[in-house]
């Protein structure tokens, strides 16, 4: 089975994330890491591989992004993925989800040129853009079923069944391989790379592709052809410091009640 995991390199959420002067996310000047939500995707891909035992399963970690993005792939390799692909091209900078999904789809097609890709695994959302749309867009572009927002995953032969917390119901979704799967942080903790894993990762195959390798034209991607445009970004004004009281002998409850009454919530 040929599994591709899409992993994104994102600015650290606990750091100082900000915008560049052209209103794109600053991806160079801040510390980045493998999007935490994609660790769950890598973990599930590895678990599927482990469950398939004897069967020949390859897990390929794929990222689209600038130079540093290769770190996301490297981390996936350290966790246990077999090989990596980094799509990098100056023209990609500033791409929106629509263009990103195009590049990912072309890369997945190329990755499956010899042995077709059976399963594409994504995180539920990137921790920077958090649009949660790339997996559905990939399914659309690749003409594959989408089985998304999984909290529990079961595979049997070419059948995939997942449980998910839908907007208004808990659902069981099923599909037949090949398909696109996206997983939530409810799927269970992702493993940490072991020392052995870190050493082994250094020898794993790693390919670097440009848009030319994928047959994507530079004018199909990037900021200048984005189908939506950011007009303005504004930092949220800091909240004015609120009133903080210490609870002593029940005074806290009274103060809280008075505050709520003064604000007409009671």
């Amino acid at each position: 089975m040929n599994i591709v995991v899409c992993v994104k390199h994102v600015p650290d959420a606990t750091g100082d994330r900000h915008f560049e002067s052209d209103n794109t996310v600053d991806r160079v000047g801040v510390d980045g890491l493998l999007s935490e939500l994609d660790e769950y995707a890598v973990e599930q891909a590895l678990q599927i591989k482990e469950k398939a035992e004897g069967d020949d399963v390859t897990v390929t970690a794929l990222t689209v992004g600038p130079e540093k993005a290769v770190d996301a792939v490297r981390k996936a390799l350290q966790m246990g993925a077999d090989q990596g692909i980094h799509v990098i091209d100056d023209a990609i900078a500033g791409s929106d989800a629509i263009a990103t999904s195009l590049v990912l789809a072309k890369a997945i097609e190329k990755a499956g040129a010899e042995t077709p890709v059976d399963l594409v695994v994504c995180g539920m959302a990137s921790t920077d853009a958090s649009m949660s749309v790339v997996p559905a867009m990939l399914a659309e572009r690749l003409g594959l079923p989408q089985v998304t927002f999984a909290s529990v995953i079961e595979t049997q032969g070419d059948q995939v069944r997942v449980k998910r917390d839908g907007d208004s119901a808990t659902e069981v979704i099923g599909g037949t391989l090949p398909l696109v799967l996206s997983v939530t942080d409810q799927t269970g903790e992702a493993r940490y790379p072991s020392f052995k894993g870190i050493m082994a990762a250094k020898k794993k195959p790693m390919e670097t592709w440009s848009l030319g390798d994928l047959g994507v034209e530079a004018d199909q991607v990037g900021l200048s052809v984005a189908w939506s445009e950011v007009e303005d970004t504004t930092a949220r004004p800091p909240r004015t410091a609120g009133e903080i009281v210490k609870d002593e002998d029940g005074s806290g409850a009274t103060a809280l009640t008075e505050f709520l009454a003064a604000k007409k919530f009671i």
Partner: peptide
């Protein structure tokens, strides 16, 4: 905006060649 809504929107954007804004 919800899981389903965003996915429908994402697919519709690609089908119709349209820009998408979420949330």
């Amino acid at each position: 905006s919800g899981f389903e809504g965003k996915e429908i929107a994402g697919r519709l954007a690609i089908k119709t060649g349209s820009g998408l804004i979420t949330d």
